[in-house]
Design a protein around this nucleic acid. Structure first.
Length: 596
RNA sequence: GGUCCGGUAGCUCAGUGAAUAGAGCAACUGCCUUCUAAGCAGUAGGUCAUUGGUUUGAAUCCAAUCCGGAUCACCA
């Protein structure tokens, strides 16, 4: 049990025994004591003053007396200031804590809950390469999965490949018309970029035709419908659905190029999936449900034959679920897929990591599933995140303002290489080790940059300034880890090192205590990140831990500690700090080096 | 127009009922003969969009207003 929970429990017990009053645990606020006051943890007395009919000063004094006498082995002192009871915990509590945990590599991980959670993330279009926005999605999804795992859940990671539809036909058509048989190999371009080029080309050529038609007097809407290229793309979609071999062949070929490109990037960024669904295989899944919904009178048919659901009573609009020609729309596919996922995995919770543009869609999706009484309906959760924008606004493919994922990662790795060489501390590392170090720093920096912000907030990325390697960054934390490892390595080489039998003293310097206090709350941080579905909680915590460590490092020497006891204590401190840094960064998908 | 999200230091962000609102970047001052200076210590920088309310206590909750964004498609 965490110390803050323990204090809460003690206060509850004392109030019950001495005042014969029950108080809800959540009414007792136990905070870390503000640095300007003496103490470690603070009990806020205001919430239950009325119930106990006491003034804050008197209640504080009474509680303080009882706590410090009854639990004299835990608390050294108490101070009442206004309505706050500040408690000082005895140093030996922190020292014991450290002694017990310092070599536990799984510190902070929770027992299995027996619950299963599905995380759907990434879900790319197979007609354009990944950009910065996709990176935020991938990093978030992966991290949420890791956080759930650390909290004892069984996790299934999935992805739905948006591999069909009019947008795919656009790049296919452009390739057919303009590529003259070129392939990624012949062009020497990564497959996803190669196909993306033709998607952009389609847009440009189509725009020309639209402009021409508009100058002949058509409205923009008419022109867009009547542009020959657009008509041809639509025909291609019809042919695709009809299974026309020539179209299917081209579709398979171009998708395989894209997948080859994606695989490379996914491997690089560490995104992985237990199950990939393909829209081309799932887009018909909702059809049965439409029939079922009509029978249950959840849906209704309009005169033209299209099928709808009326959500006006729920404060939403009417929503179409099947077109008059019988083809299904996006939401219907998603309902079908939700059912399919449940059949296969029976997850208790199904998290969709999708940008906040689709908030309405997921609200409607969950509502329809609930009305259809689909078993997984209540477990549907949309983890909505804000878009990554440029200082000038949204990234736009057409205007060429998209920050490409591969390019960004390359730049970051190069930046890391440059900086590492400037520092000149990596003598003796092989070329492979160096390459992997640059990648670790570059990729880690990118991940941290995107994960340190609350997911639901949109964020601004300025390409003019490359992602920093100082301050609140992965590099800072990686550096702290490398420093610790360096200490431990040298101690081991000198033969002194850790010795569990040795004393670790009985008093702490403020920075030693601050470190242990930080480490002690790590399990709570893992829980909080999960409850809030927010990896930035971890980013914040780990940065703080590393920062405190750097202060400690600057003030106290490990190898030249004042006494043998102090040296042991600090070695244990280093050991556990390294463990927590490593494991918390892994929850963000970031690796930490032994040297840098 | 309806719904939802956001507005905190020059910039990027923490803090969502508790003590005198915090970090990083940028600026300025110090600190490498010392376990890694990708670091540490410090200075400066705030009408928490505005107004009113609830409360012992409000950046945090409520209401209204202003500003920015998303969405309300037979696109996905």
């Amino acid at each position: 049990m965490n110390i803050s929970d323990k204090i809460r429990e003690i206060v509850l017990e004392i109030i019950l025994e001495n005042y014969q009053t029950t108080i809800e645990p959540k009414e007792i606020l136990v905070n870390e004591t503000n640095p300007e006051f003496e103490g470690d943890y603070t009990v806020v007395l205001f919430p239950f003053l009325k119930k106990l009919k006491k003034s804050p000063e008197i209640l504080g004094k009474e509680l303080g007396e009882i706590v410090s006498s009854k639990y004299a082995d835990l608390f050294l002192a108490y101070h009442v200031i206004k309505g706050f009871l500040n408690l000082t915990i005895r140093d030996h509590f922190w020292i014991d804590f450290l002694k017990k945990r310092y070599n536990k590599k799984n510190f902070g991980q929770k027992e299995r809950t027996g619950q299963k959670v599905m995380v759907e993330y990434s879900s790319p279009n197979t007609n354009k390469p990944l950009h910065l926005g996709h990176l935020r999605n991938n990093f978030l999804g992966w991290s949420i999965a890791a956080i759930y795992q650390a909290n004892g859940y069984e996790v299934v990671k999935t992805c739905i490949a948006n591999d069909r539809g009019i947008h795919i036909c656009k790049s296919m058509l452009a390739w057919k018309l303009f590529a003259d048989g070129a392939t990624p190999e012949s062009a020497g371009i990564k497959g996803d970029h190669f196909v993306g080029h033709y998607y952009v080309l389609f847009g440009e050529e189509c725009k020309k035709q639209v402009n021409a038609l508009m100058s002949e007097g058509m409205t923009e809407e008419e022109a867009e419908k009547n542009a020959p290229l657009m008509k041809e793309a639509q025909q291609m979609l019809v042919d695709w659905e009809a299974g026309k071999p020539e179209v299917i062949g081209l579709w398979k070929k171009m998708n395989s190029w894209v997948y080859a490109g994606f695989d490379e990037t996914y491997k690089r960024i560490g995104s992985d999936f237990d199950k990939i669904y393909y829209e081309s295989e799932t887009y018909l899944l909702g059809k049965e449900l439409v029939k079922e919904g009509l029978e249950k009178n959840v849906f209704f048919r309009k005169e033209d034959g299209s099928v709808w659901i009326d959500l006006t009573e729920d404060g939403l609009d009417q929503k179409i679920v099947q077109r008059k020609d019988g083809t299904s729309v996006y939401i219907t596919q998603d309902i079908g897929l939700a059912v399919e996922k449940y059949k296969q995995y029976r997850a208790d919770l199904s998290i969709y990591v999708v940008a906040d543009e689709q908030n309405y869609h997921f609200k409607v999706l969950k509502l329809i599933c609930q009305k259809l009484k689909i078993p997984s309906a209540d477990g549907i959760f949309h983890l909505s995140y804000g878009l990554v924008e440029l200082p000038s606004g949204r990234m736009k493919t057409r205007e060429g303002t998209v920050v490409d994922a591969d390019d960004l990662l390359d730049e970051m790795a190069m930046e890391a290489e440059k900086k590492t060489k400037e520092q000149g501390k990596t003598e003796g590392l092989s070329n492979e080790e160096l390459a992997s170090l640059y990648e670790m720093i570059g990729l880690g920096g990118t991940k941290f940059f995107l994960l340190r912000v609350d997911p639901k907030k949109k964020m601004i990325f300025n390409p003019e300034e490359s992602i920093d390697l100082h301050g609140y960054t992965a590099t800072f934390i990686q550096y702290a880890h490398a420093r610790i490892k360096s200490i431990l390595r040298k101690e081991k080489e000198s033969g002194s090192g850790l010795n569990i039998e040795t004393n670790t003293g009985d008093s702490l310097f403020p920075l030693e205590k601050a470190m242990i206090l930080n480490l002690e709350k790590y399990p709570l941080v893992i829980e909080q990140a999960c409850a809030e579905m927010n990896p930035s909680v971890i980013a914040n915590y780990t940065f703080n831990l590393a920062r405190t460590f750097n202060s400690f490092y600057d003030k106290h020497s490990v190898s030249k500690a004042e006494t043998a006891d102090k040296k042991q204590l600090r070695l244990q401190l280093c050991e556990l700090t390294a463990t927590v840094i490593k494991s918390s960064m892994q929850l963000l998908g970031i690796n930490v080096p032994e040297r840098m």
